[in-house]
Computed example of a mutant assay.
Amino acid sequence: MSPGQPGAPPREKGGRQRPLLLRGAQGLVTILEWSGKLIAVATLGVMFGALLVNVVLRYAFGTGIPWAYEIHAVLLPWLVAGGIVIAAARSRNIAISLLPDLTPARYQRFLLLAVEIAIVTIAASVLWSSQPILRASSFQTLSTLGIKQVWGYSSLVYAFGGMVVIGAMNILQLLGGIDRPGPDPARTSLS
């Protein structure tokens, strides 16, 4: 298989093949991005379907599905968590790029490394500090569904755990000499 063909191992500038560890890091980020996409699509589908069926039943029979109001308490946090993981995997988090734009090119990698270390530290501290909330939510039950609220709150672990893993993989790639390209303003502009 020659370089440039679909499925060929990625190559760095200069034609050298990337080490297996760096390819694995990018592969893990891609898997996390896809898991976020699947979670977002599934939660949107279930929430929309429950809302639609509830509206139809209310108009047709005058009564709806009682649990349709509670399902959002479990699924909406998962939808947000999926979006957080997708944004982190694509390096599309909310960011102010003034400082990187003003930094000389030779120092930008160090700045990106510092930002990724800060992201990992903050996300890990959120995971650590959310443990009491997760334990408390295991005692709270949704009245109609009868399930524990920990199922909704566990999305915190997915979202911030995903951010820790993605940040660690980004750090590994930066240390391995792979530049993380910024978003292309021409393709990402909403105007």
Rank of each mutant, 00 (worst) to 15 (best):
R16V: 14
R16M: 12
R16W: 09
Q17C: 11
Q17I: 15
Q17M: 13
R18S: 11
R18M: 13
P19T: 04
L20M: 13
L21C: 11
L21R: 15
L22A: 09
G24C: 02
G24R: 00
A25S: 11
A25Q: 06
A25N: 03
A25K: 04
Q26H: 13
Q26F: 12
Q26R: 12
G27F: 00
G27P: 03
L28D: 01
V29P: 01
V29R: 05
I31V: 15
I31C: 10
I31Q: 13
L32T: 09
L32I: 11
L32K: 07
E33T: 14
E33Q: 14
W34P: 05
W34T: 12
W34K: 10
S35E: 08
G36Q: 00
G36W: 00
K37Q: 14
L38G: 14
I39Q: 02
I39N: 01
A40V: 13
A40Q: 10
V41G: 10
A42H: 03
A42V: 10
T43C: 06
T43L: 00
T43V: 08
L44K: 07
G45F: 04
V46F: 07
M47I: 13
M47H: 04
G49A: 14
A50G: 06
A50K: 03
L51K: 12
L51W: 11
L51F: 12
L52E: 05
V53W: 05
V53K: 05
V53M: 08
V53L: 09
V53S: 07
V53P: 03
N54A: 05
V56T: 06
R58Q: 12
R58C: 04
Y59K: 11
Y59N: 14
Y59R: 11
Y59M: 12
A60E: 08
A60D: 08
A60R: 05
A60Q: 07
F61R: 11
F61S: 09
G62V: 01
G62K: 00
G64W: 06
G64Q: 07
G64S: 13
P66V: 07
P66S: 06
P66I: 07
A68L: 03
A68S: 10
Y69E: 13
Y69F: 14
Y69H: 10
I71A: 05
I71H: 01
I71T: 07
H72F: 15
A73Y: 14
A73T: 15
A73N: 14
V74M: 05
V74E: 04
L75E: 02
L75D: 02
L76D: 09
P77A: 01
P77C: 02
P77W: 02
W78F: 10
V80G: 05
A81H: 01
A81P: 02
G82R: 00
